[in-house]
Design a protein around this nucleic acid. Sequence first.
DNA 1: ATCACTGGTGGGAGCGCTCCCACACTACCT
DNA 2: AGGTAGTGTGGGAGCGCTCCCACCAGTGAT
Lengths: 351, 351
Amino acid sequence: MATHGARGRSGGRPTLEEVAARAGVGRGTVSRVINGSPRVSDATRAAVEAAVAELGYVPNTAARALAANRTDAIALVVPEPETRFFAEPYFSDMLKGVGAALSDTEMQLLLIFAGSDRERRRLAQYLAAHRVDGVLLVSVHADDPLPDLLAQLEIPAVISGPRSSAETLPSVDSDNYGGARQAVEHLLSRGRTRVAHITGRLDVYGAQRRVDGYREAMSDAGHRVDEGMIEAGDFTEEGGHRAMVALLERHPDIDAVFAASDVTASGARRALRDAGRRIPEDVALVGYDDSAIARHMEPPLTSVRQPIEEMGRRMIDLLLTEVADRRPLASRGLERRQMVLATELVSRSSS
Amino acid sequence: MATHGARGRSGGRPTLEEVAARAGVGRGTVSRVINGSPRVSDATRAAVEAAVAELGYVPNTAARALAANRTDAIALVVPEPETRFFAEPYFSDMLKGVGAALSDTEMQLLLIFAGSDRERRRLAQYLAAHRVDGVLLVSVHADDPLPDLLAQLEIPAVISGPRSSAETLPSVDSDNYGGARQAVEHLLSRGRTRVAHITGRLDVYGAQRRVDGYREAMSDAGHRVDEGMIEAGDFTEEGGHRAMVALLERHPDIDAVFAASDVTASGARRALRDAGRRIPEDVALVGYDDSAIARHMEPPLTSVRQPIEEMGRRMIDLLLTEVADRRPLASRGLERRQMVLATELVSRSSS
DNA sequence: ATCACTGGTGGGAGCGCTCCCACACTACCT
DNA sequence: AGGTAGTGTGGGAGCGCTCCCACCAGTGAT
């Protein structure tokens, strides 16, 4: 008789052992069937599967995690306050892609916000406890210590936008440079000449690349790049508004604006309206992300579409490979581990 | 020598045993310190804490879960597609409250969507594996089988809106009946007499209670309740629009509308505008939720505020008690386990 | 007949905890 | 002195898996 074997046995969930007894085989064989090993005869497999069904057996995750040293869970870490997560369609689209890619997997997705210092400390603790097999990092700033922590803990991770051109982590990104060029070239092709740019947070590498794209598209078209036509934003509505006000003050003759996000564009639109400018007659406006906001804006916003859901899916693919390949520091070259997806300009009536 | 002891020991995380050796005590003592048991002398506790710090010990969650038969995780189950989750501020506010209440806990929150049949099957499997200690259920419909599954699995659960007046699960709700009365009485006090109501999904108990509140506020004020002035919506923008169109067709002389949610009100507003009605001059409009939408609507929307964050916090309190008290079927009376929070009318220019 | 192999299989050992029993050792009664 | 409680504490047993080694047929080559 077990000393305290009955504790917590709510309803007496069947164990591997019981399934084995029922099927008339050994524990190892049942484990093999459960885990889809090919080294089991068809007859045995059928017997085990029958026993599993009869008993309603469900593997005990904790036991498996302990024995196999894995958790079957990955975390999507958002280093932002929750508010921004809900305000920016970028995140929800990403989540959709990630969820889709994970849905035919046994993997569980954990959504973790780490906006405040406190939350970040909690997260560090959490990661140190190895409660996930891998981590998806979105929207990481240049000086974020998180990636290094992950590396030190040897937890596989994939980042959604490289921190710099020298990123060492596997990453998935859209072609920010190319997307920005598409936007600017589009505006120029419409006969606009005084094109301004409201940037994103410049500690985000992707935002920098968009500035680069803006600059080079302008100069390649034979325009002098006026630094006064570039104003820093921060991806928020408020930032877009502020930047637009500043731009109008410096250059009242602006006839086009390329904003680093749709939300930013929405703020810019408000400032333009307040200043009595018509869109697109007086000023053409182009955003970035092609989110729901772009479609519902008045007038509908031309925007650079990033395949965000697709990016989410690719990130999962990369991460799962990484998790599976976890042989000791096997990091083969980075060739296959950094991917850049193409963007597409969606033209609407704001330009 | 262990046979395969070295497998997967990435970086050699210290174990309880090692901490014990270092501190010169037994395993049990370290466990007691880690779990904050009072039956440890101060000197011993200090020694153990020092060893923990030196070694950077972090408990292995899987081992703990296996031995103690708990997971230290709870799930927030949203029986809706993700899209609705992001579209409705109700959920994000709830999440905020829940997150806040959980932040000084060791508990991990899992966000699980179960909108499609497929996702629901996955969820059932997940719950059967007892991967969480408790479940928070939001936005449950009258005929949802989930609560029964939870009961059968003996998993503690708290529901955010009772399914009926005979709800057996612990629940937290706002006073839907009272809130609706506030809205209607407000409209009547402004001199409106032909007040219509666009309902929420009627398979949600709270939506029914709002209808009850509307009915009784009208008749208490001496108005005959005209069933033609009640039109079913479904909490969506589209539903609100559709309902408003139907109402206007039947009763062109409507001078006030109480909508069961802000999103619904937003749809109604569109229909009213299209029909050339001015708000509030021709028709006064009141919503429900007091979400960001209400504040940003044009004109700003009068709305019934539910303390959603507070509700989230209370749900966690209830659930944690439930989880802790998990003695065999101890369900003491329901007195303390169903709470109703007061609402508040926030008056803006739409009424 | 003997010697490889090769697919299948059983079951011991061990993952790192928690629980609880047993055993000090003290302090305070009769 | 001999009980009788209490405090702290050590460590065995066990949670339900996975891993891997040993073993047992069969099969074909020698």
